[in-house]
Design a protein around this nucleic acid. Structure first.
Length: 598
RNA sequence: GGUCCUGUGGAGCAGUUGGAGUGCUCGCCGCCCUGUCAAGGCGGAGGUCGCGGGUUCAAGUCCCGUCAGGACCGCCA
């Protein structure tokens, strides 16, 4: 070893010892006759004192080796801000291991640089304790997950990243195959089918910290490649997976966020979540619930509401506490806010703070009977504002109110930023209508109907419920899973309802259906969005902070400048422009990558 | 695909009504300095105001386009 001690580990009890440290010059304070250098390594910072001139040439981020004697600082010179602040190292020898050019961005916890610059020089960004600690936290999260799962006899198994497209909704990343020109691998959107195959194989308990890929647009919590803690178990029910999920979040939050999660985590049905919060991932750190007014406002002459009610739709409201004190400009701002979300607008009534009288453009359109009881029905007090949404599509109106609810909480300062509010959202619907009038799987087509609906989901596909569950914290979905279908007859009926023909099913996932001929066990699983989980645990607002080398919004990596064009030679070798042979292999049964037509 | 915000020495910012590349903090270079810890003092270097076009006597500032970064909507089961 080049060093005998880590800089941040030195304490008063080391006084008198001669130590050799190695690290970076975090800061140099040159007083002429005495020079102080804050020496930083991964463990922390210690002050090194030089009496020799040679330290004069040191600059920020030089990599150095220092030998010297640890000693307690002179009376009155301790630094309580520093873990090592009781001592300092009196240098006797200095070796410059490497010099640093002037820095393109400051390596300083107190200063922030722009995102693209940070990413271009991510290795310097990560010398800062904040960004580095996010990655260290993630490493510990991995360790905790592995401890929990190995204690339960899980097997960590790696599945292919060059594979067929899995039947998820998102666009695939594709990889040309040189050995079979004109054919393409897809990068997995999740290991879903492989983990189900591992259940067929009898491994019973599988997990993987799995890299997944989706070619969709970015968000603060979305990257094109991301990580899931992916779990699947055989011979279990929804209850078993939920119990496991609770141990995981309990340990993670307990050890990494210092928060004791109250178990069991409360559950809310998907329908209740939509009715009360207008979201399938409700933020329960604050109240402000939706009120349905469809029957209360029956017979109204206000066309916006009447139209929705007559169409068999929904009218609802959400209350903004103290919202009546908003200026006209602020209230108009809500209209722009709603329009930005694709809504026509957001009707509102304000209740006079003194008299409780309802005012605002919508108030004129409502009858006295409707107005007089309104405050009681929605639970509003004088001084509040009431926002309305109406639509022939119940979910559409509820989601608008749900988004308004979040915005209300932000604007009215209702969010306790230090709180953690967990819940499971259960009993999700199996299907939802497509724009074309058919049905599509809400989760994925292998999700099992629950016991009640297994025999009859065709009778009312819009009401049929699945054994599907999401775990939500503070309005963030951090994981989701389901019990899978393991019976061929049920799977066939689901495919039939989704309009997937046997030929299509065979073509897309014939290998899974084939495997399910051979005694598949009942199985269920869950996947935790690992980037998002670590982001929340580390108190960050972007998953980029918990990814070592993330990409910018455009899918660009400022550090490596990927993606890059390829040469004509590479293009030729990869067979990108090759025309696929008709029906190469028998896709779905022999694992040959499917031809993708241009 | 859409809406919005941002772009000014190496970094982070300010820049008023359109009037000289003006200013601040940090960093960088040189000198001074023996107890600092975001050290201090003195001096200095460093600029295609993202890019292109337009309006104007005059554009960092106004307009149009474009590029880059960010937030959100669509999209992402």
């Amino acid at each position: 070893m080049i060093r005998t001690h880590e800089a941040g580990s030195l304490r008063a009890e080391h006084a008198g010892q001669t130590v050799t440290l190695a690290g970076w010059v975090a800061r140099r304070r040159d007083h002429g006759g005495v020079i102080f250098v804050d020496l930083r390594d991964a463990s922390g910072i210690v002050q090194v004192v030089f009496r020799e001139e040679d330290a004069h040439a040191l600059r920020n981020e030089f990599c150095v080796k220092v030998t010297g004697e640890v000693r307690t600082r002179p009376e009155g010179n301790e630094n309580p801000e520093l873990a090592t602040g009781a001592i300092e190292v009196a240098a006797t020898e200095l070796v410059v291991l490497s010099e640093a050019a002037p820095l393109p961005l400051p390596v300083d916890d107190t200063i922030t640089a722009s995102d693209d610059l940070r990413l271009k020089y991510r290795y310097l960004d990560l010398r800062r304790s904040g960004p580095a600690s996010a990655l260290k936290l993630r490493s510990r999260a991995n360790q905790i997950a592995r401890e929990v799962l190995h204690a339960r006899d899980f097997n960590e198994i790696e599945t292919p990243t060059l594979t067929r497209s899995t039947p998820e909704g998102a666009r695939d990343f594709l990889v040309p195959v040189r050995l079979q020109p004109g054919t393409w691998y897809a990068l997995p959107q999740s290991p879903q089918l492989f983990k189900q195959l591992l259940m067929v194989s009898g491994l019973e308990r599988y997990y993987q910290i799995a890299r997944c890929y989706r070619d969709e647009d970015f968000r603060a919590d979305r990257q094109p490649e991301f990580t899931q803690l992916d779990i699947e178990m055989s011979f279990v029910t929804q209850e078993d997976i939920i119990e496991l999920g609770e141990e995981l979040v309990s340990k993670l939050w307990g050890e990494l966020a210092g928060y004791q999660v109250q178990l069991p985590i409360p559950r809310i049905t998907w329908t209740d979540a939509m009715n009360r919060y207008g979201s399938d991932k409700p933020d329960l750190r604050y109240g402000v619930e939706l009120t349905e007014l469809t029957s209360y406002l029956a017979g109204t002459s206000f066309r916006v509401f009447a139209g929705a009610i007559d169409a068999g739709g929904y009218v609802g409201a959400v209350v903004m506490p103290g919202g009546a004190s908003q200026t006209r400009k602020e209230l108009d701002g809500w209209q722009d806010w709603a329009k930005a979300r694709g809504a026509r607008g957001l009707a509102y009534v304000v209740l006079d703070a003194d008299t409780g009288e309802a005012r605002g453009p919508v108030a004129k359109n409502l009858s006295n009977e409707h107005l007089s009881g309104l405050a009681d029905v929605v639970g509003a007090k004088p001084g509040d504002a009431i926002f309305f949404a109406a639509s022939a599509e119940r979910r559409e109106a509820q989601e608008l109110l749900g988004a308004a609810r979040i915005e209300i909480a932000k604007r009215a300062g209702l969010i306790d930023e230090s709180a953690w509010a967990f819940c499971w959202v259960v009993d999700a619907p199996m299907f939802e209508k497509t724009d074309e009038g058919g049905w599509t799987a809400v989760h994925h087509p292998f999700t099992s109907p629950n016991e009640e609906w297994e025999a009859k989901f065709e009778e009312a596909p819009d009401k049929a419920l699945a054994y599907a569950y999401d775990i939500v914290v503070n309005g963030n979905e951090i994981g989701g899973g389901s019990v899978r279908i393991h019976r061929a007859d049920v799977q066939k009926r689901v495919f039939d309802l989704l309009g997937i023909t046997p030929e299509e099913a065979e073509d897309k996932f014939g290998f899974l259906l084939e495997a399910f001929k051979y005694g598949p066990p009942p199985h269920a699983g869950i996947a935790l969005g690992w980037d998002r989980t670590c982001m929340l645990l580390s108190g960050n607002e972007s998953i980029r902070e918990v990814i070592a080398f993330p990409k910018t919004r455009g899918g660009y990596d400022p550090l490596t400048t990927a993606p890059t064009p390829i040469t004509a030679q590479q293009r030729l070798e990869a067979g990108i422009d090759a025309k696929p042979k008709a029906a190469a292999g028998t896709p779905g049964t022999d694992g040959v990558a499917a031809p993708v037509l241009p």
